[in-house]
């Protein structure tokens, strides 16, 4: 599977990573090489095999659906690049 420049552009956008137009051909080439490496997986007979969901055969723990934490808005916001009046601030989203 080889990745063309349009696909590379689309993947970069899906990943929300800005890539300069000039850098797209190199990126497409790198991604293609890695995908070619992955294509070895097509040699494996996986008929009837369930995809692994959990590496250890254990049931996930259940717990009471109760609040165990909270009331620390200040700490939650302490690392934000832009926090105002108890909120995270971002560029205008709605016109």
């Amino acid at each position: 599977m080889s990745i063309d420049i349009d696909t590379a552009r689309r993947v970069a956008h899906l990943a929300r990573i800005a890539v300069e137009e000039d850098d797209l051909p190199a990126l497409a080439g790198e991604l293609s090489n890695i995908l070619t490496f992955m294509e070895q997986l097509n040699e494996v007979d996986v008929e009837g095999v369930e995809p692994m969901t959990s590496v250890t055969p254990m049931r996930l723990k259940r717990r009471e659906d109760v609040v165990t934490d909270g009331d620390q808005a200040e700490k939650v916001l302490s690392n934000a690049p832009d926090a105002r009046e108890g909120f995270f601030a971002v560029p205008k989203v709605v016109e």
């Binding site: 696909t7 993947v11 899906l14 997986l41 097509n42 996986v46 095999v49 369930e50 692994m52 969901t53």
Partner: peptide, 20 residues
């Protein structure tokens, strides 16, 4: 890419089967 629509089965699910 491997999780995107249309490739999820071919790559991600196949890899999880091989992992099993």
């Amino acid at each position: 890419y491997v999780l995107s629509a249309g490739f999820y089965d071919a790559y991600y699910n196949r890899a999880r089967k091989v992992r099993a």
